[in-house]
Every structure is written in structure tokens, then in C-alpha cells.
Design a protein around this nucleic acid. Sequence first.
DNA 1: CTCAATAGCGCG
DNA 2: AAAGCGCGCTATTGAG
Length: 379
Amino acid sequence: MDEQIQAISQPIFAIAGREFNLNSTQQVSDVLFKELDLPHERLRKTKSGHFSTASDVLENLIEQDETGIAQKMLEYREMQKLKSTYVDSLPTMIHPLTGRLHTSLSQTGAATGRLSSSNPNLQNIPIRNEAGRQIRRGFVARPGWQFVAADYSQVELRILAHVSGDTGLVEAFRLDQDIHKATAAAVFSIPLEKVTFEQRRFAKAVNFGLIYGMGAFRLARDSEMTLGEAERFIEAYFKQFPGIQGYLEGTKRQAAEKGYVETLLGRRRYFEILHNPKSSANHNEKERARREAINHPIQGTAADIIKLAMVEIHKALQEGGYAAKMLLQIHDELIFEAPEAEVEAVRELVVRLMSNAYTLAVPLKVEASVGKSWYALKE
DNA sequence: CTCAATAGCGCG
DNA sequence: AAAGCGCGCTATTGAG
């Protein structure tokens, strides 16, 4: 990746006889969409009226783009992001006395009760693409120590199963089924072993979309379905998981009647927009508030639970006389650093306390891994 | 120079 | 435009 990153030091590109700065989305938009022979009537516009050059737009253009500029820009952007945000920036933030990076965690940064991380943000270190993932090679445990990482598996869907009481979802988690596969089998009315990769991928998108209050429009856009087909699919989904439909409706009703919704542990988020019938908010704002209300009890409960686990684990490490330290929380995941001799005990302790942090109608599954670097975590 | 808004994108 | 939630950081742009 070093070579790839070095290769982007020059952000000036020439195309259609003009030079422009690839960092300037406005320049790119003007040149790429107006001077090139691309159909630009149907393209998305930004707030300021320029054509959007967001990655999803460029990806859709690759096919028809004979110049190859769309592909080039995506590659350039990926490397530029990694270079500016991580490779160039993180080393400058190493503390001179400790030789380490120290983030600041805010307990009030997120409306749902999540923590947020800043200066630097260590909750968004790349992992999804291999080039970015290489950044994690830079995070290494001190000599003779190892990282122990433990994350909740599907914690938000498990919380949805609990708060909705949906029997199908609860059963699937109790049987420790592959939840997206089980969803696909249910909505397509086929046996588990007949579920294709595509069907599972689709069910996964729908499961996540629900947590965020997704509608038929988005579903249709992200799939090959028409709007009508997407509406029928969602209908079929709710028929299969009526508890989920009940949760969505109940949450909306509570937000309207009481003006707030809350997590299992009582953390509230207020929605004046939905409570006040004379609210001046427009339709879009109300729809957004509706989705926020749907999401809060789920995301917020997950945040409550991992915080309980963090308190318990801190206590247990202290009382057990461990040298191991809790380093970082990434929403559904905790990272520790432990001396070699403590690794197995810490791993066992962390998995146990995270799993038992709060009792739901379904098990809280925790997966752990160990390694000398953040890149090399295994198991 | 600082400040705010915007576009874009990294993560869960 | 906006049409799935929650964040923080970088670069550009335009303003004072």
C-alpha cells in the first residue's frame, strides 16, 4: 500500500483538455459530467447544485465511462482518505511521554448513548478493505503482551428480538442459527439449506435496514425490485415476523404519545417533533425523527449493555490483580492489552462478563480474538 | 488568519 | 432533495 499511497501525491488530473484538482468535487463534477459524453440529466445533485461525485454515483457510472476516470477517481479517493486521515495524521498524534496514541472518549457525544472517540477517532480505523486494513499493522501490543478483542455478535438484532418479542426471531437466536440465512429461509419460504448467497445477502440488508427504519423506496433502489415488489416483500417480511411490525408501530406510537422513547435501561431520547401535533417540522423532518425513534431503543440498549460490561470487567481486572488494561471500545467491541501469561484468563473473563452483562430473551453471543497487532487478531 | 458550511468517507 | 441509524476527520470553498 505504501507505493499506492505515494502514487497519489499529485492530485492534478488532465482530461478533456483541462486540468483539475481531484480533491475538488466541484471541479471534478464540472469536467466529468459536463464535458464528457455522459448522460447527466438524471444524475444526483448536491445541496449546492453541482453533480454529486459520491462513490455510489461513480460506481454506477463505471460501466458507461469510456475514459475510465470514474474508476480512477474511486481509487484515488480511497488512497487519499487513507493517507490524509490515518497514515499522515496518526503518527503526529503520538503522545511524546507515553509513545502511544490516546483518544478522547465522549460520554455525551451520541444521542443514543453511545460513546464517541476523537483526537484521534480510534473507532473508525479501516478494516473493510484490504488496503485500509493494513493501517491496523501499525497498532501493536507492547513486547511480551497481546491484544485481546471481544465483540458482541449481532447484538442489535438480538435486542430487536428481545424488545419485539418476535417468536421467529427469538427462536432463531436461541437455536444459534445464522440469522440472515434463517430470515431468508422464512421470507422466501424455503428450507435453510436451500438459501443462496444472494438471498442471504439480501435478507441481511433487510434485517439491518429494519433497525434503521428503512422503507420500500430504499429497498427497491438497492435491489432489482420495483417499488411495488419491494412493498410486497416488506409485507411478506412482516407477516413472517409480526412481532417486529408490532415493535415498529409501538415505538412510533410511544414517541407520538409520550414524546420520547427509551432503552431497556431507561435512557430516553425526546422527539418534540413527533409529540407536538402543531410542530412546524416538514414531512421529511418528521420521517427522519420517526426513524431515529425506531433506532434509539435498539442502538441505545446495545450501548447501555456494553457500558455495564465495561464497568464489570474493569472491576474484575482490578480485583483479580491483572496487569491487563482495557484500551478501547468500538460500540459492540472491547479491545484489551494483556501480558502473554494473562491472555487466556483475560479472554475467558471478558467473554463471560460481556455475555452476562444483561439478560435478554436470547443469549448474548461474544466472539474473541487474540494477536500481537490489531491486524493479526485470530480466532 | 479563523470560522462555518459542504461534500465525501472511514467505522459500528 | 430526501427517501436506513449513530459518529469524527479531511479537504474545499466562501466569508469576514
